[in-house]
Amino acid sequence: MSDLNPATPVDGTNATPPVFTDAARKPVVVVDDIRVTYRVFASGKKVTPGNSRVKHKGRLREVEALKGVSLVAYEGDSIGVIGTNGSGKSTLMKAISGLLPIDTGSVFASSRPSFLGVGAAMIKELSGEKNVILGGLALGMTKTEIKEKFDHIVDFAGIRDFIDLPMQTYSSGMVERLKFSIAAAREHDILIIDEALAVGDQDFRRRSEARMRELASGAGSVFLVSHSMKSILDTCNRAIWLDKGIVKMDGTAQEVCRAYAAAQGAPLDD
């Protein structure tokens, strides 16, 4: 494809649009042509023929989750990441945060990007209060810091009445709210959020989106993976569309969401 305008989705399996750069702003994350291939032992027999991302080597199957992704995130950017299931969104986010070793290519960042994944540290048999402490420590906060922010976290999540109950008694929305509140209590330079804002009621969603904009408005940058075009349009200035492990489109949130929604057969109504 000869058109260099980044705001057009590209076609073909291996074509990617040129990397969006902006000389006027300071980059905080530079992703340079990263590839991630998962090697898995196949236990079943059938694999869809013609799926270009699955290669057979005996029982060992190789799944190319990312096939050369490059991008630059700038100060103050809040980037929505969209794409169908299995397009490589989560893999890209884990690779950027350094949690998943990449095969080739590299990621450079002004500070280590943090994943909003505090939920993994929680123990459901224990009270919300203890989980706030444990989650905070897992994120690298000190005990004094957690103590200072404790009331704020609990009120932001809106679970003050239940904070001394075991977390397994919470509704799933309450758990998600608590997770977000703990993770968002810390200042992050570069924050990665994978499908977090889809939860919670209207009021919580509004507050968490506001907090996200606040986090992005500093010197940092935020990545938001979501299937909700509304979330992305409300919080992001930019969006990246991933398709089968490559960047299909990189541009303003409006442009990319519109093109993606159209490709999905559900055009956005303005």
């Binding site: 350094g98 994944g117 540290a121 897992a138």
Partner: peptide, 9 residues
């Protein structure tokens, strides 16, 4: 595994 995959420490 989930802890290792989602948090940096």
């Amino acid at each position: 595994a989930s802890l290792v995959r989602s948090l940096d420490f």
